[in-house]
């Protein structure tokens, strides 16, 4: 009898030990996966650095300031692409920031009944879900023919300004910038709207009670109060525009040169990689990876800044 109890208790001790072991393994596994996800960025950076090393050793920082991309002589410098990446993103922001903040205000106020507002907000969210290659396709076959007459008029009347000084072609910096602008506006709308909606109602009530009109309240009280959220939204959108590949690759013309005119074809880091990577070999591959590394650091800086701004904004709340 006593031996039976002994056996049983030792048996249950054994299964308990196994259950504990499983528990510990499970904990360790989930912990390992979480740590892996947290540090995957470092791994990506390290891998890119390693694969790009031949080009980094060969060209050093001169890569950033040299405007040559010559696979025949194996001399590479990404200045035109860096310039194109930044300028096309600026064009996109010039379009998307006023439009996006305008729509965010429109959707956060009660201009329309909530029954109409919610579907509109949903439709704008869908804009963000359409793949970029479809934006590119639409850009090529719908937008470019549509805006060409307008660009021609701008060139003819304002051609004396350097940025409009060349005749618009079917591909160019401005076409890519416009499509990028349409693509990033949903981000600006969604986050700015959240920032505006989550402001304490006392702000609005106080301002209205002092006799301010609705728009005076929006422009002088609500927008300044939501400013850090809106800036965070713009930074996130900028990060997206800098790294967006397909719309740029399909619309910018992929010309590795720096031109003052936004009507000229240009190229971006991402479009350069998309165009040349599959056929590249040797030093050209590592140069493309080097360019990718620069792009990654650029977007990382922008995104971390956005993250910090938005987090601080949430803490103030």
């Amino acid at each position: 009898m006593s031996s039976f109890t002994n056996e049983s208790s030792s048996g249950s001790n054994g299964s308990l030990a196994i259950a504990r072991l499983i528990d510990r393994i499970f904990f360790g596994l989930t912990c390992a996966f979480a740590v892996f996800i947290a540090v995957i960025l470092l791994w990506i950076t390290a891998q890119l650095f390693q694969a790009a090393y031949p080009a980094i050793a060969q060209f050093g920082l001169g890569f950033i300031t040299t405007a040559r991309w010559n696979p025949v002589e194996d001399i590479y410098g990404a200045l035109p692409q860096i310039y194109g990446t930044i300028v096309s993103s600026i064009i996109a922001l010039l379009l998307a920031v006023p439009l996006g903040v305008g729509v965010a205000v429109f959707l956060s106020e009660d201009f329309l009944p909530a029954k109409i507002r919610t579907p509109i907000a949903f439709v704008i969210e869908l804009l963000a879900a359409v793949p970029s290659v479809v934006y590119g396709l639409w850009g090529i076959f719908v937008l470019v023919p549509f805006i060409r007459p307008f660009l021609n008029v701008i060139h003819q009347t304002l051609g004396w300004i350097p940025i409009f000084s060349t005749a618009p072609d079917i591909r160019g910096m401005v076409q890519a910038g416009i499509v990028l602008g349409i693509m990033i506006s949903p981000i600006i709308i969604a986050i700015s709207r959240d920032a505006l909606v989550s402001l304490p109602p006392q702000l609005r009530q106080g301002s209205l009670a002092l006799g301010a009109t609705r728009w005076e309240t929006i422009l002088k009280v609500l927008l300044p109060a939501a400013l850090s959220g809106i800036i965070g939204a713009v930074m996130l959108a900028l990060g997206r525009a800098l790294g967006e590949t397909m719309a740029a690759a399909m619309l910018i013309g992929n010309a590795p040169r720096i031109s003052a005119s936004v009507f000229d074809p240009a190229s971006t880091i991402a479009s350069l990689i998309a165009n040349q990577f599959a056929e590249a070999s040797g030093l050209q591959v590592s140069s493309l990876l080097y360019a990718g590394l620069i792009l990654m650091l650029l977007t990382l800086a922008v995104n971390v800044l956005a993250e910090v701004i938005i987090t601080r904004f949430q803490q103030i709340e």
Binding site: L41, A51, M296, L300
Partner: peptide
């Protein structure tokens, strides 16, 4: 981890391609 994931989701998709290539 949340910070790492937020930043990761902002990394351009072409960079993931370069990483998978490497």
């Amino acid at each position: 981890v949340r910070f790492g994931i937020n930043v990761l989701s902002g990394v351009p998709s072409i960079i993931m391609g370069l990483f998978a290539y490497a």
